[in-house]
Design a protein around this nucleic acid. Structure first.
Lengths: 363, 363
DNA sequence: ATGAAAGCGCTAACAT
DNA sequence: ATGTTAGCGCTTTCAT
């Protein structure tokens, strides 16, 4: 077998090779490639045969350099295996594919520096859009760096899209897809309140992340509205991980902190919390009620099935792409959609919440 | 704010602009960009200042066209939200990032035609490696199309990597990372057999997929070795979805099919099966034992916690990249690793299997 | 240490 | 309908 490792023999075929073999000009080859211009049927056949014979594969770099779009959208997440991000990524990918685009995907693992670096990398690739997903840290220099990139991208005709985080305001030309994070938190805390719970432990989520701040804000607003005085001990942010949920709650249980319900910052944290409760012999929901956030599939696998807030993850991903690139099949340049979008959330009631009255073991 | 939408005003800055502003040649700009060649400190500073001032962002397409690698690896999965693929993707991404590469990711949703089309798209992008993940269908023309692409890629100095599927043999120049699929299935069926189960229902997995065939093969081998006659009614492939697991098992239960254990084709199917069992009032593991495959996180959330086969997903992803591109930090061209790799699997015993003797409700 | 110039493979005017 | 040609933005000999 030939060419078993790159450096020898047959160079890749180019339009010139194809043109030569087919006895036409490179322009003609380009035309059959792009089906944009009339080409005689017989010529087309000849060119296609030549391509086939040469195993010709068009060079997207050359094409992009010559003026065409790179047909790429970039997406930057914390972690591709986290279902929150995975579902958004799925929406992005789906919508991108519909516009005949490929996705560049990368993970920052929560490091804002990496996020900025990846934006640059994607800009270098001339992505049509760069979508940064998930909460952002509240940090002056980070924010202004981000804004700077938004401007750079925009000047080059690309778009920075914020997905699931607050807009940068008019400080920068971005599109953004948000969801009613605060509202969802309000609603589910209210749900707990309605069931008679007042000592609600808020557990998990990086304290500096916009996501956490918004959820916490909704939580507090609900508390206030019912005249429940917030207890700082009951606010225990930390991380968005199962391990954190388990560990912190285990400690808290050991410390005999009093609460009748747990509001986990997301479903993953809830899974960890549930394990901690289970191990401590605390029954859910009879002894303690538990809710999560996001409504990712694991919520349905937990026992009891988790009451949580549904977030339209996949839809957010799709909209993020729509906001930045023309949705049509072909290359038509009808302007992309609006500049900012806010999707709704709603609570999904399952089996992890019970009225406070049923409890016996805790206050 | 300027340039709010592409088509107007300031074109993107190029090396030429930078060179002009810094009062040097484009060659010099290129040199400071790549840090490959000596450049006077003072010159470098001046060039960097110019870049900063112009908001210069190098064009990766031009760079790639001029001969550099595109620093991209492509990965093709069935679905990015399926944890089996997500974890492999994570490994790929991680290893790619280590080599300073970005990942192109796309989903076929199980359609081989799309898979082939995506390979082409990635080839057009001149990806250093194209990694196709997951089982493959047994289809003559598909296989030869795949082989053809492997050859094309190889001639161009890229590599097609098969991850989690059988190699194409010497029909084509590919690298491949497999895992002991058959062995894992053998082991877990044997585990069931050891507990006294003989009527084991194999549930789920597309029948035409290599993954299913291998798992089923291991399952049958274990059965044979113990002299258990296989009952065709007990082999119920179908799909790799929770919905399938639930639906099919619900039907089977209704038909009073007799079995004392269920071997779900993967953990997701197991989740569906567990729900069906639960709804039918069948206790797991007292009445029926249940096992899965893959050992993805949901296995630990199910109640009872699922006994399953661990597959080194992330590691597979990492190795897939190593096989195709030089692992080093920098561009050194020490040859990539071996051509084919087979990783081990092992069973993880949790709480979803009990000895047959304990049962009362079913034979 | 730096500059000049020749491409890399393709597309898009502009001719014919 | 098809051919000619001039770039796109960068890297890279080859000079100096």
């Amino acid at each position: 077998m030939r060419g078993s490792s790159g450096t020898e023999g047959s160079r890749r075929a180019t339009v010139t090779d194809v043109a030569k073999l087919a006895g036409v000009s490179t322009a003609t080859v380009s035309r059959v490639l792009n089906r944009n211009y009339p080409v005689a049927g017989e010529t087309r056949t000849r060119v296609e045969a030549a391509m086939e014979q040469l195993g010709y594969v068009v060079n997207a770099h050359a094409r992009a350099l010559a003026g065409a779009s790179g047909r790429t959208v970039g997406i930057i997440v914390h972690d591709v295996v986290d279902p929150f991000y995975a579902y958004i990524a799925r929406g992005v990918e789906q919508q991108a594919a519909q516009g005949d685009r490929l996705c560049l995907v990368c993970s920052t693992h929560g490091d804002p520096k990496r996020e900025l670096a990846y934006i640059d990398l994607m800009h270098e690739r001339r992505a049509d859009a760069v979508i940064v997903v998930g909460g952002s840290v509240a940090d002056r220099t980070y924010t202004s760096e981000l804004a700077r990139r938004a401007r750079q991208l925009d000047e080059g005709g690309s778009k920075l899209v914020l997905c699931g985080r607050p807009s940068l305001g008019d400080r920068a030309p971005t599109a953004s897809v948000e969801y009613d994070n605060e509202g969802g938190a309000f609603a589910i805390t209210d749900h707990l309140l309605t069931q008679g719970h007042e000592r609600i432990l808020y557990l998990g989520g990086p304290p500096n992340l916009s996501t956490t701040r918004d959820r916490l804000a909704g939580h507090r607003r609900a508390l206030e509205l019912r005249g429940v005085t917030p207890d700082p001990r009951l606010e225990q942010p930390g991380a968005f991980s199962r391990a954190f949920g388990w560990r912190r709650l285990t400690e808290l249980l050991k410390e005999k902190l009093e609460f009748t319900a747990v509001f986990a910052a997301n479903d993953i944290v809830a899974a960890g919390a549930l394990q901690a409760l289970e191990e401590a012999g605390v029954r859910v929901p009879q002894d303690v009620s538990l809710v999560g956030y996001d409504d990712v599939p694991v919520a349905q696998e937990l026992r009891p099935r988790l009451t949580t807030v549904h977030v339209p993850l996949e839809e957010m991903g799709r909209q993020a792409v729509r906001l930045a690139v023309p949705p049509g099949e072909d290359d038509d340049w009808r302007e992309p959609m609006a500049g900012t979008l806010r999707l709704g959330t709603h609570i999904v009631v399952r089996d992890s919440v019970a009225p406070r009255e049923q409890k016996r073991r805790r206050t």
